[in-house]
Design a binder for these strands. Sequence first.
DNA 1: TTATCACGTGAGCGGATATTCACGACAGCT
DNA 2: AGCTGTCGTGAATATCCGCTCACGTGATAA
Lengths: 217, 217
Amino acid sequence: MLKKLSAEKQLEILEIGIAEFAEHGPAKANINVIARNSGVSVGVLYKYYENKDALFLACLRHALTALERVISEVFQSSDKMLARTEKLIRALQRSAKEQPCYHILYHEITAGSCRQYASVFAREIEEISAAAYGALITQAQAEGTLRQDMDPRMFAFFFDNLLMMLQFSYCCDYYRERFEIYCGRDALSDDDKVASELLKFFESAFTTERSQIQHQN
Amino acid sequence: MLKKLSAEKQLEILEIGIAEFAEHGPAKANINVIARNSGVSVGVLYKYYENKDALFLACLRHALTALERVISEVFQSSDKMLARTEKLIRALQRSAKEQPCYHILYHEITAGSCRQYASVFAREIEEISAAAYGALITQAQAEGTLRQDMDPRMFAFFFDNLLMMLQFSYCCDYYRERFEIYCGRDALSDDDKVASELLKFFESAFTTERSQIQHQN
DNA sequence: TTATCACGTGAGCGGATATTCACGACAGCT
DNA sequence: AGCTGTCGTGAATATCCGCTCACGTGATAA
């Protein structure tokens, strides 16, 4: 190999691609623009990626891997459920602000122009978190720190629903606007308040009077 | 006016448009296909709508009006908070199954290819429900049937987050898959179970021991 | 120094599709 | 019946953009 694109340049292409795909959506993102912004020619893009679709998938994978890392780091710890939940919230807030495009790209695959990948990616991404959250919740129920009267899978589902919406609310244009409409102009900057309110919401959903009564029996 | 497209035909165009835009996303939806499927010529579409964008916005407005009607019907009643919440859940489940494309279109505007409209539509759509939910919650807090220790706007926000995700989980491909992964194959058909589980989740978030203690004082 | 060839380049081809416009059809009027 | 103006038609046009390929460049080997 003589010149070959450096690893950094290849990464740069992915980053620029993520930005472009996130800004315009997969359908309207422009390959020629990605090439220009990355400082390479269109031709070389097609040496590395078979077509636009392949480039998009590479960008997506890059973004999703980064997001998975954020989640899995939180799951390294052996905290109790609530502490872990708080860490999750904080980590998502930070990540959504630092790398908004990654989250926007994640959101993209839920939209119409990505229908084709919907089932593949749903399995790939959500199976992991569904299993993790499900296990966490079942365990918490067994330990008696969580209400007994709910289907743990449904619980995990609602739990993740709130976390997904939280991510999107920090970086997707529509959801950002909506966030401000609901919670006020400074909602986007006052991370502590949002985190603590969401945590309160979760906390009372986690632990009802019933679950405690059942636990004492 | 001599012939002019009948009101029914104009409605049909909107319905076909909604289906096409929902299936492929605004960017990839094909005007010529919409014309053919509606049984009219492309030309006439351009007599009624300045361009593709204008047609898309008309479809969007049609869909959103229908969705608003679903919500506002529930708000006609003077039920207590929990009863109203249940009605909301049921109405959204029904509507998402009967008119999936309407909800998919709603979801579309949150994605990248619609960035330009994000702020306009966010105000138009969410301001209404934000105000309604916010008022509902403030009132419930005043009556003492709702915990006092949460910011009512944030509460309304989380509340609506769960409802939005519920809608999407019944009709957007990715969210449907995810729904099944989290809650099992039959989640999509067992509406009663989903409704009751979500209601339980809300119920305990609404009413904590603390709120009841405070109320008894 | 020169030949070779691995890589990168970007002008331009081709297909897709949004948009136009010259035309036909037909209702009402005379 | 013939005229007129309103509408609807869809082939044709214009544009955009994904993708290709003939070429340039510079590192290596002889």
